[in-house]
Design a protein around this nucleic acid. Sequence first.
DNA 1: CGTTGATCCTGGGCGC
DNA 2: TGCGCCCAGGATCAAC
Length: 314
Amino acid sequence: MEPLIQVRILAPEPVFQMPELPEVETIRRGLEPHLIGLTLQSLTVTDQKVLDLSARDGRLAGLEGQRIETVTRRGKYLVIALERHYLIIHLGMTGQLTLRDPRLPDAKSFERTVTGLEWCEQHAPDRHTHVHILLGDGRQLLFRDIRKFGRVYVLERVSNELLAFFETHHLGLEPFTPDYHLESFLAGFKNRTLRLKSLLLNQAFVAGVGNIYADEALFEAGLHPARKAPSLRRVEKERLFLAIQTVLERGIEFGGTSFRDFVNSEGEKGTNQEKLYVYGREGEPCLKCGTPIVKTVISQRGTHFCPSCQPRRR
DNA sequence: CGTTGATCCTGGGCGC
DNA sequence: TGCGCCCAGGATCAAC
């Protein structure tokens, strides 16, 4: 018998990696060298729900034949700049973006459900593949999303439509840019009375932080997720400011592994899940102090923390 | 204006 | 073996 894909399919734990900033950045870095300079031959949408044309007609038709100039990212949004349009992609929760070369063999089939970045080998479109983009070199860029929380937006590349788009979608500070400095961060606490977990999930505060990295950042900063934003002393805000960058950076560092494999069809997953301190570790010992990690619900979101390293009061 | 909670969507896991 | 039920979760929007 040939070695089978099943070996990898039988991973001990299903690995969910919600596409947050590090995952989207990983995807961006993987796609960029493949896409730049290619033309977009066609874009086909098989489920209109995932496409947002911002109420203007005729945009899709004009896309064909345009060259891809840049592949960038803002928060969790991936931005593909064509000559006259922007293609903006948000992966939602289970969105996948994969390159496929029809001349090469596909992974056999979906022998089990695929979400997020869990399974990255080249695959044929299936009933969850909602957008097909045909590229100039014969390859396809496929957007697949089981739960359909993801969106593909098409914008005209004129004036400040991109800035307006991100304003409309309430995107705040962008980590790893000069905009991300302490003063702006502290300003984000103004008139905020909610709990830290909710604050971090708000994209208008810091763009790109999702459920996993919110929990990780709070652990890194030693702050209890249920604490109210105004209760923080300045030093605690400073710790959080740094912690967010730290955990996102770590995520990119270890998530990057998965994408090389994705492009090369090696089919391995990222390893950042092994670097998580609290997310998904309910009942397991804290890696710093041994106390069992606690899971609660805050803002209708699963929230993990170490009750010892993240005391409610100091 | 800030905050909260319902909503969308589907597969997986669980109980019986 | 299978059915019904409930859950996860990003962003949006209505209601306070």
